[in-house]
Design a protein around this nucleic acid. Sequence first.
DNA 1: AGAATAGGCAAGCAATCACTTGCCTATCAA
DNA 2: TTGATAGGCAAGTGATTGCTTGCCTATTCT
Lengths: 100, 100
Amino acid sequence: MADDLFKALADPTRRTILDELAQKSGQTLFEICARLSMKHQLGISRQGVSQHLAVLEAAGLVETRREGRYKFHDLNTGPLRQIADRWLAPHPSGPEENTP
Amino acid sequence: MADDLFKALADPTRRTILDELAQKSGQTLFEICARLSMKHQLGISRQGVSQHLAVLEAAGLVETRREGRYKFHDLNTGPLRQIADRWLAPHPSGPEENTP
DNA sequence: AGAATAGGCAAGCAATCACTTGCCTATCAA
DNA sequence: TTGATAGGCAAGTGATTGCTTGCCTATTCT
């Protein structure tokens, strides 16, 4: 649960995607591809971006809605709130399982 | 800069180390090893923990002070504040370089 | 119907990561 | 000084990751 969130944020390209979705909601895959290429000089394939979006969606940071052949992506900042709060006050015990 | 921070948080063992340092400041390497083993059943070598601490220190999340043969580790929550704030309001442009 | 558009699935590859093992240095106690 | 304690450095390994290429499905336009 928390693992997916932190791993999703670990990649700089994914963080840039979140930046773009924060700027403009409801972008399609191709629109995100174009923005990464034009504004950030990211030479990445469409599938690369698609896989990044899947990771972000698994982390709950991106939500999608389908309309016809379009799939719109929206940023969800909800999961971000639990991050900083975790280590601000001392906890009785770490709230995470850890068995890799 | 931000890259080190997010990559440091990506590993569950490192997050557990932060949990332990949040509970008790100024722990030594051996003390952290013992806690990971006893409280979290993490069968990890001393060097493994040492390398994790180096990553956390590079991210600015852990600060160290040497006294004699002991090296004490302290949690620094400062870098955590910039995380959640990044995507809460729409930015004019993403504040990160992205050239891997 | 046919072609273009938007997206998905899966195998393959190079780079990175977490972790271990082995040896070495520095500080303190006997 | 000898030995024990606390920590550091470096090479090696197996697994994960980011990305590409190739092909396939679904929806829309002419």
